[in-house]
Every structure is written in structure tokens, then in C-alpha cells.
Design a protein around this nucleic acid. Sequence first.
DNA 1: CTTTTCATGTAACAAGTTACATGATTTG
DNA 2: CAAATCATGTAACTTGTTACATGAAAAG
Lengths: 175, 175
Amino acid sequence: MSLRHAMLGLLAEEPASGYDLLRRFEISLANVWPATQSQVYGELAKLAADEHVTVSAEGPRGRKEYAITAAGREELRHWLLEERPRKRRDDLLLRVFFLGTVAPDEARAFLERGVERMDAFEEDLRTLERNTEWNDGDLAINGRIVLEWGLRFAAMHREWAQWAATQIPQRPTAR
Amino acid sequence: MSLRHAMLGLLAEEPASGYDLLRRFEISLANVWPATQSQVYGELAKLAADEHVTVSAEGPRGRKEYAITAAGREELRHWLLEERPRKRRDDLLLRVFFLGTVAPDEARAFLERGVERMDAFEEDLRTLERNTEWNDGDLAINGRIVLEWGLRFAAMHREWAQWAATQIPQRPTAR
DNA sequence: CTTTTCATGTAACAAGTTACATGATTTG
DNA sequence: CAAATCATGTAACTTGTTACATGAAAAG
């Protein structure tokens, strides 16, 4: 149930409306925890019902600005420090696992596309880095740390994919 | 919809029952695509309805062995080569993003636990490596490639977490 | 003959996606 | 005044989790 915590985390910085949150999901959290519009509004209603947030202001066009409560901060803290990370699913590795079901040429081409995809991903991160205002807030410091993870991940993945392509046998394995 | 493809991939190697598949999910796919018992049986019924698999044999205790069909192989191939990877969610990075909401000491301790978790993960992978029969099948070749990814990932993540701990400021950032 | 392993299924719930629906306010 | 942006909400559906329920067959 981490969507809830992502929202609490953003609200811990400053109050925001559903619409505001949505934009911040698109900009800074897109690569870490994507969320859709209907999810955000739905969860905001649940968070309000649980008193983890309250409506702190109302604006034009029915805008409701939400602020995190003490209970909400407690919930955020608990999740951050105590909860254990959930199991990961990786659909790219799953494909690699079954790469033996296609021809060796196709498998190698697949891995090489992976190298290109990582180049593009790294490029995206560099663009994000340039376009972000790295002010002195907490989110800036930690955002940079997360970004650095992305860069190291891209480098690791690229090198792995290059190596992996060399491991694919020339001919289909005998069956 | 990758559970379906994970199952097709396993059935592409050899026919299996729901029970067999479940064990293979636990052993070889646990770190890549975990699946529960109820998911496997449910999806197997859907796959049969779509004629991507057929009941190829029946055994004791109501056992039903399923085999992949030509349509199933086509579906697997399409997913593997044409479908684009879905967006990733990473709940660990999400926490890092909001690490500014806890005290610097706690944040540093959190990252250091991450280093330990990677050590344990690497240990798990080494155990898996030792306990697996690396025969000459496709799954063995590609399983090793995936395992290598895990090892490289663990190394990358550990070094990153060590570096990240040095980036946390000594005192809370002014608010 | 008791325990373990094999074997399948269902129900209730939580989380995530896609599409639909509506309308106020601001900007050019 | 037309288009873009701001703003919220609901409905239907898919995917994934947890718990319940049952029983046959093999192993010791």
C-alpha cells in the first residue's frame, strides 16, 4: 500500500490538491511510483476518512488543498522505517529467462535493444537532472540520491546486457 | 499481464500441472515474478479457455497436466519480442525519496540496513547458484544470465547505498 | 495408521488501469 | 469567445493477496 505513502510523503513537504499531487507524480515520481488520476483522488478520500490528511483550504473550481496530519506523519514514518520492502517483479528479466524460446539472433537483438533502451533512459535522467530546480529542500537532496541510483542502474544494466549478448549460443540448443 | 507469459514460458520447456508450475515459481522465478497458488490455478483455467494451453494428461488426485499449444507459443513470442516493458515501481527508492522526513541518523541507518540487505540477497543468489542443476537447457543458460543480473544489481546497489549514506547531511535541513 | 506431500479450487479483498463524465477559470 | 488548463469524481475491469476448504495418495 505504498501509493498512500507516496502521497503522504509529498504532502509532508507542503499541502497540495489532488491535481498538484498528480503533477508531482508525473514529474518527480514517474520512474519510481507512477500513479493515475483516479487512484490519487480515490486514495485522497480514504486518507481523509482515516484522518491522515485534512482539507486545509478550498479554492476555485472546487479545488481542495490537503495537509498532512500528525497521524499521517506517524504513518509515513512507520512505513518508511519499519515496513519491509515488498517483492519485486521484473518483466524484462522474465523475458530474458525465456529467451531460449526464440532464435539466437532474435535473442541477441533483444538484448541489444536493451542496451539502447538504457542509453535512452540515461538520457532521460540527464534531462530530468537539468530541468529540475535543485533547491536545498529535503526532496532535492534525496531526489538526487534517487537519480544517482537511476544512473548507476542504467550503467550496470547496459554493461550486463552487452555481456549477456555474448552468452547467447550461435545455434539453437539441441532439444 | 505477465503472469500468463511466465506460465507459458515454463510450459514451453515441458508440460506441467498447476502444482508443478507453482514449485517452479517458488524456486527459479521467486525473485523475478512471484505468483501465488490461487493466481496460478485461475490463470491456467483462463489459458485453457483461450486455447493457449490444453490438458495433455490426467493423473492421480485430480492432477491435470497442461501443454502449451501453437497459439500459446505465438502469444509467448509476441509478448517476448514485441510488447514494451511496463513501468517499474520501486518501494525502496520511494522511501529514499522521502528520507528527509526522518532524522539524519535514522536515514543513514536505513541506508546501511540496505547494504546489509544486499549482502544477504547476494548470499541467497550464491546459494541458489549452488543448489541449481545447471544442465544444458535453455532455461539454464538464461537462468544464469538472469542470476548474473542479480549479482551485478546487488553490487551496484550496495555501493550506491554506501555512497548515499555519505550524502545525508549531519543536521536536519532548515525548514 | 499418521504425517507429509500432492493436488485443485473458491471467496473476499486490495491495488492498479482505462475510460467516461462534467464543468469552472484563465489565457490568448 | 475559443482553446487550454485546472479540477474533481465515478464505473468497469484486471491483477494480485490472503484465507478458507477439501481430499487423494505416498512414505515412514
